[in-house]
């Protein structure tokens, strides 16, 4: 287990380095000159002298390799520089917006689990029943409705017409309802079908028949054995989506005026705030990696066979 963990952690290093390289290359490939972008944000008329001075200050006149090494060095020290627009450290800007994003991500994930686990499980056990058809309909809807449209529809119905929830903003539990539903519907669609399929697969296994012949209660077989194993693919999906949600749910944050990380990123793109874009990309990569790692560890705990397999391979 410990060795597995060390191996996984070591594998993170090249992935992050690759993410930094990709981000570095993409920014250099973009037609936007960071020095120009800085001067535009600071409202300084870009004369040739000031541009040259800024390019020198940002190290843009150095060879690309030197620039890349400098970038990696700074990022390793968690120094993402200052935002061109607000002139405050990117790290600080991100920290003030993270709580809002984390809250929304966690509430959406909880809502997705609360709905999709029983729904997917029941849809598998009662295959081709009403509940199975309902889960299928919900999945079709969730998979095909664009999030921004769903957001507007929910606001229009439940906020403008029925006056049940606020249109936008953050602060009370009511503010969580509509954005969480908007984010969850797509997740529920995927998880319900995923869980249904894997439960059906598990039900075919010998251990289920064996359990039944041993006289173990059906409920125990289903919950303690079938569900425990069948939930594994869903957990993997959950980890990936948690990473996605934590990096800011750009569209939903925009539609519901949610003051999170994603909305901040959109503003940074419009302002060509390169240090923020750079910081966002690296942090997003790290968040994805960490979330996946956590999910793997949880899976290891739920299904020890994975750990044994890993060790056997090593």
């Amino acid at each position: 287990m410990f060795i597995y963990l060390i191996k996984r952690l070591l594998a993170v290093v090249p992935i992050i380095l690759f993410a930094i390289f990709l981000m570095f290359a993409l920014i250099r490939l973009s037609p936007v000159d960071p020095a120009e972008a800085y001067l535009a944000a600071a409202n300084i008329h870009p004369t040739d002298e000031i541009l040259a001075e800024k390019r020198h200050e940002f190290g843009l006149d150095q060879p690309l390799l030197v620039q890349y090494v400098q970038t990696v060095k700074k990022i390793v020290q968690l120094d993402f520089g200052n935002s061109y627009v607000t002139n405050t450290p990117v790290w600080q800007e991100v920290a003030t917006r993270m709580p809002a994003t984390i809250q929304l991500a966690v509430s959406s994930i909880i809502l997705s689990i609360v709905v999709s686990v029983p729904l997917g499980f029941l849809a598998a056990i009662y295959k081709n029943s009403l509940i199975d058809h309902l889960s299928r309909l919900l999945s079709y809807l969730g998979a095909s409705i664009p999030q921004f449209w769903l957001g507007y529809v929910l606001i229009f119905l439940f906020s403008v017409k029925l006056d049940m929830f606020p249109v936008e903003g953050r602060g009370t539990w009511q503010h969580f309802v509509l954005p969480s539903i908007t984010l969850s519907l797509a997740l529920i669609a995927i998880y319900t079908r995923l869980l249904r399929a894997s439960v059906l697969e598990e039900l075919e296994n010998v251990y289920v028949i064996y359990g039944r012949t041993r006289g173990i209660k059906e409920k125990t077989i289903m919950v303690k054995h079938v569900l425990r194993i069948a939930i594994s693919p869903m957990l993997t999906g959950l980890g990936m989506n948690l990473g996605k949600l934590l990096t800011g749910t750009i569209i939903v944050e925009q539609v519901f005026s949610w003051p999170g990380f994603g909305r901040f990123f959109i503003e940074a793109i419009f302002n060509r705030d390169i240090p923020v874009i750079q910081g966002y990309v690296v942090l997003a990569a790290c968040l994805f990696i960490v979330c996946n790692l956590i999910v793997d560890l949880v899976q290891l705990y739920i299904d020890p066979r994975i750990s044994r397999k890993g060790m056997a391979e090593s």
Binding site: M98, P99, I102, V106, I110, G169, R170, G171, H175
Partner: peptide, 22 residues
């Protein structure tokens, strides 16, 4: 753990926001 995430992140927000945005 989940509850503490909520409490910590909620602690970072100003409660006035609730009354304000309502």
């Amino acid at each position: 753990f989940v509850a503490s995430i909520f409490l910590v992140t909620a602690g970072c927000s100003n409660d006035d926001a609730a009354s304000q945005s309502n």
